[in-house]
Structures are given as structure tokens and as C-alpha cells.
């Protein structure tokens, strides 16, 4: 990996981490209503995959979607504004954390329905194939979604039609509170790919270089007409299912153990310095730049006007 790519991947991951930290603070200040689902701990997946995507490539995301939005180059200010329920947010404050879509970057949307985006990404890939473009679609989803019917239906269809789509399963070990080891009779979810007739790849979702390499191969294959891939990234979420989750289904030892052992940012810092791709000072400078960018984004979002008064029908039909 070259220096520029390594530092960019680190910067994207650091941006996601900082975004989650700032969101949590804003939530604690009662400025964000509802709930938020932190992507902290899973940053390497969105960063490593989206590094290969163009603005005209498609993604579908999840309820834990901040990382995918950021890696697909969303504007931080508009994201915060959405979380804060401002008129200046991506969806004018209608969607909040779980429903950010970014039409300018091919982000078909975070989604509050587990597995809801999988067939939609598959459909976008169908259009890319039929129109003869070299666009690809990436569907991000968790281990929980891998047990939804849409997963099965979509992977089968993508395989029989050889669609340019990559299914990225982020196994963060829990479907809400339900552990993956109880929800699956298999230990490696990627073996399911064989049942559909597509390559299945399992990578360490902590290692952004590994994700980057695996995604590179899968995306290049899809662009060249080689069909879909199931890419399973083993991961762990540092926070609960949502901010404030009492996490009764986990022990303190487990949480602390994983947090220290499973940190894609610390991991990246380690190999970037070791391999001579960047110095501690350079990485610290990135941290500071990200922190500054984040504060500007929060300030911009907080200065934005509140959502406009409720008005129906609006953006429901072209004409009615």
C-alpha cells in the first residue's frame, strides 16, 4: 500500500471515530433525540471498502450507518444537521441518524429495517449491468441481516445474473442483543456464499489493509463482469446496540477485552509507522485536522435553522 492511501484510510477511520464521539457528546447534551447506533470499532470496514468506490457507485447502508456515509464522502455538517433535526440536514431533519441518504454520492441510504437495503443494492447493480456501465453496488449489512429473507433472495439473484454487487457483512458479533454464535450454526458466515455460487471471503474487520485488499479484488471482479462476492468482515462494536444500551448480554470483561484488542485505529497506527508509511507526528497531525474539521461541522450544524413546520404533502409524490 502506498503512503497516500494508508494515510487516507487512517483519516477516514479517524473521522468516523471522531464523528461517533461527537455524536455521543451531543446526545448526552440532549441535543439529539431518539437514538444513535455507534459504528466505533467497525471503521476499517467502511473505510477499506469505500476507498475503491467512485461517486457514481451505489451503496446501501444500515441503522449503524454513519461510517458508511462518511466513507462514501458525505458532508459532515449536513450529517450532524440531520442528527440535530435541522432544516440543513441531509433529509431536512426528517430522517435523523438512521436514515441518511446522499443522492450526490450514490448513497441509497441508511435503513432502519435490518436487511431492507440488500435487494435495493441488487437492483441498482441490475441497472448498471443492463446499461453497460462499470458501476458497482455495495450493500453493507450486519450479521443480523444475514438471517433475513432478503439476504437469501438477493444473493441468489445476484449470483444467477452475475451482477456487479458486493455484499459486505459486518459481523459485529451481535444482532441487537443476540450473539452471532447463537444465531448461526456455522462459525464462518462466508461459507454461505458457496450455497449461492459466488466467492465468499472472510477477513479481519479490524485490519483496514486486509479489508482494502479483499474489497479491491471483489470490486475489480464486479466491474469486469465477474459477478458478486460475499465479503464477511469479522468485527466488534465498541458501544452497545444503541447509545445507552445497558448491555446485559455482555460482560464487562468481554467489552473491555475487545475494546483494547480490537481497535482498527490503533492497529492502523501500528503498521503505518512500522512500515514507514507515516510517522506518529503525521498521524497526530491528521487527528488534529479531523478534530478541527469536526468542530467546524458541529458549529455549522448547530447554527442551522430548526426543521420547518410540518407541511403535508411534501416530497411524497411528484404530483398528487
Amino acid at each position: 500500500m502506498d503512503k497516500q492511501t494508508a494515510l487516507h484510510l487512517y483519516r477516514v477511520m479517524r473521522t468516523i471515530r471522531r464523528f461517533e464521539q461527537r455524536s455521543t457528546t451531543l446526545f448526552g447534551e440532549n441535543k439529539i433525540w431518539g437514538t444513535i447506533h455507534s459504528y466505533a470499532g467497525e471503521e476499517a470496514i467502511a473505510a477499506g471498502v469505500c476507498e475503491h468506490l467512485r461517486d457514481d457507485d451505489w451503496i446501501t447502508s444500515t441503522h449503524r450507518g454513519h461510517g458508511h456515509c462518511i466513507a462514501k464522502r458525505a458532508e459532515l455538517g449536513k450529517m450532524f444537521a440531520e442528527l440535530l433535526g435541522r432544516e440543513t440536514g441531509y433529509c431536512r431533519g426528517r430522517g435523523g441518524s438512521m436514515h441518511i441518504a446522499d443522492t450526490s454520492k450514490g448513497n441509497l441510504g441508511a435503513n432502519g429495517i435490518v436487511g431492507g437495503g440488500i435487494p435495493i443494492a441488487t437492483g441498482a447493480a441490475l441497472t448498471a449491468k443492463q446499461l453497460g456501465t462499470d458501476q458497482v453496488a455495495v450493500s453493507f449489512f450486519g450479521d443480523g441481516a444475514a438471517n433475513q429473507g432478503t439476504f437469501h433472495e438477493s444473493l441468489n439473484i445476484a449470483a444467477i445474473w452475475k451482477l456487479p454487487v458486493i455484499y459486505v457483512c459486518e459481523n459485529n458479533q451481535y444482532a441487537e442483543s443476540f450473539p452471532a454464535k447463537k444465531a448461526f450454526a456455522i462459525e464462518d458466515i462466508s461459507v454461505r456464499a458457496a450455497g449461492y455460487g459466488m466467492p465468499g471471503v472472510r477477513v479481519d474487520g479490524r485490519d483496514v489493509a486486509a479489508v482494502y485488499a479483499a474489497a479491491s479484488e471483489a470490486i475489480a471482479r464486479a466491474r469486469k463482469g465477474g459477478g458478486p462476492t460475499l465479503l464477511v468482515c469479522e468485527s466488534y462494536r465498541h458501544e452497545g446496540h444503541y447509545y445507552g444500551d445497558p448491555r446485559k448480554y455482555q460482560t464487562k470483561e468481554e467489552i473491555e477485552g475487545w475494546k483494547t484488542a480490537f481497535d482498527p485505529l490503533l492497529d492502523a497506527r501500528g503498521w503505518i509507522v512500522r512500515d514507514g508509511l507515516g510517522t506518529e507526528a503525521e498521524l497526530d497531525a491528521i487527528d488534529r485536522a479531523v478534530d478541527d474539521e469536526m468542530e467546524r461541522a458541529v458549529a455549522w450544524a448547530e447554527a442551522g435553522p430548526p426543521a420547518s413546520p410540518l407541511k403535508f404533502p411534501e416530497d411524497i409524490y411528484a404530483s398528487y
Binding site: 435487494p119 437492483g123 448498471a128 446499461l131 453496488a137 432478503t150 439473484i157
Partner: peptide, 22 residues
Amino acid sequence: MPLAESAIVGVAIGAAIAGLVP
């Protein structure tokens, strides 16, 4: 299509946003 109504509609949605008229 395979007998998979959820995917028939879901694929149509994605294909439509991307530019076809399904």
C-alpha cells in the same frame, strides 16, 4: 424471477432509482 417476491420488488426499486423503469 425466482419465487422471491421481496426481491422482485426490492430489485425493481434499486433498478428504478438507478435509471430503469421496472
